[in-house]
């Protein structure tokens, strides 16, 4: 029957229509571009249910809120990493920036008697500069982000190790220590969680509502196109990496406050959790796509997973295997989703 075969006809605008129109798998039309984020929200609910079924203590709200402080550093770093990966780059050195900033601040305060009020701003500036150095090498010398940040991964942590060796410094003032135990008065909500959400909202506005944010996406979609359309590519890159460094520094301060101690091996390997969360959050590893909302959801997904595994007495080393698997599955899933929406969309 000829009428049932697809026939291609040209519409007046020259567009080719297929008749009958291909049957479309419909999520709500408006949500379709955000399929990865929708999947994340569903997964988050699933994680809750699995966690709750594994242990009766899991759904204890104060416990859950309290447990967020354990991975708040990774969460904050994931916000900056979202910018980096959307722009088509990668930063393997974040955990090392965290360690170097934490170490340097501790050395300044404990060994050189610099007051905390001065040491903290210096630490934040240092983090920004370390990130900016990554960005400068990548942008100015056009080196691969991978090679540069792999080198600084070793270099920054190596410097922290030179500074502190195998010692740990812990003589911090009382007001600085234990930020994770401070809650919003009258509620069990930790103050660091509020800090994270404030940062997420500010950075979300920066990424999604400003020209700078659009530049980040353009850079990730096509760097060449970005150059030809007059975007200051080099400066944007340096800014992205500097922002990432600043967030790593903030995370470093929180970690020192939380653990009340500074060591060179703080956060070793944490870049895995950070990158996993960002990729799981729907940011394309090839650049050009991603949202702060997705990363935020995914951060809690990875965090709850780790908490759940911890509650279920799974050792930290075995958790590593789970997070690594999750990273690979996340990329495969995002590739599948991308192909799916390209075919049907």
């Amino acid at each position: 029957m000829p009428s049932e075969r697809p026939v291609e006809t040209a519409s007046p605008e020259g567009k080719i229509d297929r008749w009958p129109p291909p049957r479309r798998w419909r999520l709500d039309g408006r949500l379709r571009p955000f399929l990865p984020e929708v999947v994340d929200v569903v997964l988050l609910f699933l994680a809750f249910m699995v966690g709750a079924s594994l242990s009766p203590y899991f759904l204890d709200v104060p416990f859950l809120l309290d447990s967020t402080t354990l991975y708040i550093e990774a969460a904050i770093m994931a916000l900056g990493m979202t910018f980096v990966i959307i722009s088509g780059n990668i930063d393997l050195s974040v955990a090392s920036i965290l360690a170097l900033v934490a170490t340097l601040m501790a050395v300044l305060h404990v060994e050189l008697n610099v007051p905390m009020e001065v040491a903290i701003p210096i630490a934040l500036i240092l983090g920004t500069l370390l990130g900016a150095l990554n960005g400068w090498l990548i942008a100015r010398l056009r080196l691969p982000a991978l090679a540069v940040t792999l080198a600084t991964l070793a270099l920054y942590r190596g410097l922290a190790q030179i500074l502190l060796g195998d010692h740990s410094l812990s003589q911090f003032p009382q007001w600085f220590v234990g930020i994770d135990r401070v809650t919003v008065p009258g509620t069990p909500i930790p103050i660091v969680l509020i800090m994270f959400f404030v940062l997420a909202i500010v950075l979300g506005l920066l990424l999604h509502k400003t020209v700078f944010g659009r530049w980040v996406y353009t850079l990730g979609t096509s760097e060449e196109a970005a150059r030809y359309s007059g975007i200051p590519v080099n400066r944007v890159k340096v800014a992205i990496f500097a922002l990432n460094g600043l967030l790593a520094a903030i995370a470093g301060l929180i970690m020192v406050s939380r653990l009340a101690v500074a060591r060179y091996d703080h956060a070793r390997g944490l870049e895995l959790d950070v990158i996993t969360a960002v990729v799981l959050g729907g940011t394309s590893i090839y650049g050009g796509r991603g949202t702060i909302f997705g990363s935020t959801i995914a951060v809690f997904l990875v965090g709850f997973l780790r908490t759940g595994l911890g509650v279920a007495n799974v050792k930290a080393e075995s958790q590593l295997a789970v997070v690594g698997t999750l990273l690979i599955i996340a990329v495969i899933a995002s590739n599948v989703i991308a192909r799916f929406s390209r075919l049907r969309g």
Partner: peptide
């Protein structure tokens, strides 16, 4: 999957299995 992501993931998986 890009090589960095693949091997970063398998690095953790293999190391985890060393312990297991």
């Amino acid at each position: 999957i890009p090589p960095v992501i693949t091997t970063l993931g398998t690095l953790s998986v293999y190391r985890g299995f060393v312990f297991i």
